[in-house]
Simulated scan of single mutants.
Amino acid sequence: MSIHVLKPGMLSSFQDLGRTGHQHLGVPVGGVMDSQAHRLANLLVGNEEDEATLEITLTGPTLRFDAPACIAICGAQLNPTLNQEPVPNNRPLIVRSGDVLAFGARASGLRAYIAWHGGIGLPTVMSSRSTYLRGGFGGFKGRALQKGDVLPVQARLDARDLDALARELWETKIYLPATLGLTHRATVRAVRGAHAPLFTERAIHDFFSGEYRISPQSERMGYRLQGAQLPLRSSRQLLSEATSFGSVQVPPDGHPIVLMADRQTTGGYAKIAHVATVDLPIIAQGMPGDTLRFTEISLEEAQQLDSQREAAFGRLHQALSPLRRLFA
């Protein structure tokens, strides 16, 4: 039971919630860029939230199914089609043997996530199935998909009445909280960083009031931003320290970099701010050339927003219990 890759897309790699616990060995956490879309896709097919999904970037792959499966697509709207017929995001979908999933022109966002009920058979490397592209390990053969790859699907739907299952899934009411959708926000919320006192008052003001453009030199490791330069009060050396997803570090040229999923394990640049976890998907879905504005919130506000998001996921998980029973 497998899936054939007819076209790989621009950059399609398997990711989960990351390879935690190994940064002290120099191994990055990695994982999905948009954890919200990833988790949602898994819930919609009855998986645990950390099951590996296929993260696709801008140009989606073309996949042929050799056996029935249940999939969900979340995140960016890349106009997916099944046998050349449009299919929606954010719904569980039944595919049959011989079906071909493809993607069209981008409508919004940058990264979409495909989850399979039961997941894809991938080896676990350091407690994760995420692909670390620079290191060449994890995921499917440690790399992005290539034409001709064959992906093993773990769960079988062969013995089921697929028409009845598809009908039941389609009739299942799914109320997606607004906080868990592909969010369009005018600003990105961020907490002032521990190194903020090292920057001039003007730099702090410019960061939280100016407009930044995502540079073409942006990828899974970090997003470089073009806009007002952010000078320090004085030149100084900092000890390297652990990095985290969403930290905004400022190298000597004064142009900020938002550290993303494949960030380095340590860094010595001053960090002016940290993006609130709930707003990281906004940046992950941003294209080079898109603009970002930052607004300051307190740590307590960021924690409250995170708690609200987790509560929304908890309610959705409970609401989808009838869906999970269909696969039991």
Results as ranks from 00 to 15, higher is better:
S307M: 11
L198C: 03
F207C: 06
R185G: 04
D206T: 02
P281H: 11
H255D: 07
A196M: 01
G210A: 10
G268Y: 11
R213W: 00
A228I: 01
P281Q: 10
V191N: 00
A273R: 02
R202I: 01
G193K: 02
A190I: 06
A196Y: 02
S240R: 07
G193M: 06
S247P: 00
A186W: 00
V258S: 01
I297D: 05
Q237M: 12
L299R: 13
G254A: 04
R220F: 09
A284G: 10
T187P: 00
I282E: 04
V275R: 00
F294E: 13
I204P: 08
D253I: 07
L238C: 05
G181R: 15
V250Q: 05
G181I: 06
D206Q: 14
P251F: 05
A196T: 03
T266F: 13
V258E: 00
V275I: 15
G227Q: 07
E241A: 15
F208I: 02
L280V: 09
S235R: 15
H195F: 01
G254V: 12
D290T: 12
Q303T: 04
S247R: 01
V275C: 01
V250K: 03
M287F: 06
A242N: 03
R192W: 00
S215V: 04
R224W: 07
L239C: 09
V258A: 05
F294R: 13
F207E: 06
R213S: 06
Y223W: 07
L280T: 13
L225V: 07
G286W: 06
T183D: 05
V275E: 00
R192L: 15
A242E: 03
R220G: 08
P231K: 08
I282R: 08
V278D: 00
M287E: 10
M287L: 15
P216L: 04
I272D: 04
R189P: 05
E241R: 11
T187R: 09
S235W: 12
A270D: 07
H255W: 01
G193T: 09
D253K: 02
A196D: 01
A228E: 14
T183I: 15
R293G: 14
R233S: 02
